[in-house]
Design a protein around this nucleic acid. Structure first.
Length: 271
DNA sequence: AATCGCGCCTGACGGC
DNA sequence: TGCCGTCAGGCGCGAT
């Protein structure tokens, strides 16, 4: 499932092929994604040139003169660059066709993704405007996290997965970052010291940056057709490793559920 | 204001 | 082999 590192890697992969190029066709095969693809979108995009390819949280932002195309990959979405005439397969819902003979194609079996349009400055868009800081920016720091956590009774894992607190920390990397920081996922956010938040912030940054770096080397081929861009198998210490020995102490990794999400941790290393 | 839990959707997987 | 139930999961949203 695309977490922030996959989305960022996707951004880096598609940018050179679409930046500065003109959209000559828009193909919508399935409008029913998480929200319907808006009516009239094709006409808004037709003939426009991509001026920037940005990312906010897990939203990809394709900026053109008159507004911003917002893309989200949901659970199972992926974007590829293909020759413009590549036949569509099942789950290929949306194409942008460019004047360089290439096509940006959205594939999304579960359709939790989204294709939306923002006319106003995209920072003011409903889905964007209330988002917390980017995890890899300086705005995300221990002071900020600590002050936001005071009085909060939710588990620290749910807390760092809350997009108003910090964006882009998904289920996998939340478990991984807490493992690195030695913090038990169930511990109440409001009961964690400033010192430990210092460690947690650096762990989140470290885990995400490492995954993005690995993505850059693993996911090199965005052009071509060989199936989906295989999202990289990140080295994971705890996620999905129930009963396997902890890489630090050898104790079996445990699993629990927090906020309807499976959560993995080492009962010996995390408190 | 904070918290809880629903729902969207399909593929994979286990049991029979 | 085939059918069916269950689960995973991002994240906005409505209810409490």
């Amino acid at each position: 499932m695309p977490e922030l590192p996959e989305v960022e890697t996707t951004r880096l992969g598609i940018t050179p092929h679409i930046l500065g190029h003109k959209i000559i066709d828009v193909v919508i095969r399935q409008r029913k994604l998480r929200w319907p693809i808006p009516r009239g979108l094709a006409q808004k995009l037709q003939g426009q040139t991509i001026q920037a390819v940005e990312r906010r949280a897990k939203y990809l932002l394709l900026k053109i003169e008159t507004g911003t195309l917002i893309l989200h990959l949901g659970m199972s979405g992926s974007l590829r660059i293909l020759p413009a005439n590549t036949p569509a397969e099942k789950h290929d819902h949306f194409d942008l066709v460019f004047n360089n003979g290439l096509c940006l194609r959205l594939t999304d079996p579960r359709r939790f993704g989204a294709v939306l349009w923002s006319k106003e400055p995209v920072e003011q868009h409903k889905l964007i405007q209330h988002l917390g800081p980017e995890p890899l920016s300086e705005a995300f720091n221990a002071n900020d996290l600590y002050s936001k956590s005071r009085g909060r009774k939710v588990s620290v894992k749910q807390f760092i997965m809350d997009g108003k607190v910090v964006v882009g920390v998904g289920n996998i990397y939340a478990s991984e970052a807490l493992f690195l920081a030695g913090i038990h996922p169930k511990k109440a956010a409001g009961k964690i010291s400033a010192e430990r938040y210092e460690l947690l912030v650096s762990s989140i940054k470290k885990v995400l940056a490492a995954a993005i770096e690995q993505g850059g080397t693993t996911l090199r081929d965005f052009v071509g057709g060989d199936g989906k861009p295989g999202y990289f198998a990140q080295q994971l210490n705890v996620y999905g490793r129930t009963s396997e020995p902890c890489s630090t102490c050898g104790q079996p990794i445990k699993q629990l559920t927090l906020g309807q999400r499976s959560t993995y941790y080492c009962p010996n290393c995390q408190h």
